[in-house]
Design a protein around this nucleic acid. Structure first.
Lengths: 112, 112
DNA sequence: CGAATAGTGATCCATAAGGCTAAGTATCAT
DNA sequence: ATGATACTTAGCCTTATGGATCACTATTCG
């Protein structure tokens, strides 16, 4: 349960930036080089590279350099951490928690 | 939609902190006051309040003050934005980029 | 009324994030 | 061998984040 937590910090933070989400969207269609990925953005390359490093650090992408070209690939399975967290969260408010449910019901009655 | 993207910035950023995720988990079980929410954390109240404000700003929670007590409630709909984004992302790497994306975008708009 | 409770407001501080430029390294093409 | 290409490294800058404190207001309770 707390295994996720460290990963989630990085993953959610990686997702909190529009440039990085756009990169992920692009990589969703298939691998690409740094310069291909950077091309749509009005940003200096070193700045863009920071986003790539951030994404790689979070595990959402993987990169590999062959010759002078670094190719980036999306790491689909990493997104499962987000889905798992969402499921956990949803399970809480859908009352799929045994003892706690009584407390929840009571709290909600008082809250309303 | 760029409005959609800005929402995601805030939402993902809100989710990128373990304290805030813990607050959401707690609120998933039902409404709670600020001091109830703050109690588990070894943190000064003003510091904790920043997290509450952040969460409220992202729309993931709503708060209401009655007397001297502010009660916080989770905004379940808001999580749809995350699920929508995940669906979009998955649709990209699964190669279906037309109908589902529209469905997702529409669902998000109605979720507001 | 007076005291405890519940939250605010106003700083302050250190570090991280996200951008920049300028210069450097390693390939690849000719 | 030279030059272009594709990154990299190293700084620098500004703003945001996540924490703290101290002083303050507004309720509620005895």
């Amino acid at each position: 349960m707390d295994h996720y937590s460290e990963q989630l910090d990085g993953i959610f933070q990686a997702l909190a930036d529009p440039t990085r989400r756009a990169v992920l969207a692009r990589l969703g269609k298939g691998p690409a080089s740094i310069s291909d990925l950077a091309e749509p953005f009005d940003m200096a390359l070193p700045s863009f590279m920071k986003h790539i490093h951030f994404l790689e650090g979070s595990g959402l992408i993987q990169t590999r350099k062959q010759g002078r070209v670094r190719t980036c690939v999306i790491e689909k399975q990493r997104f499962q951490a987000v889905e798992a967290w969402l499921s956990q969260q949803r399970s809480l408010w859908e009352g799929r928690t045994d003892r706690l449910e009584q407390f929840v019901t009571k709290a909600q009655a008082e809250g309303d």
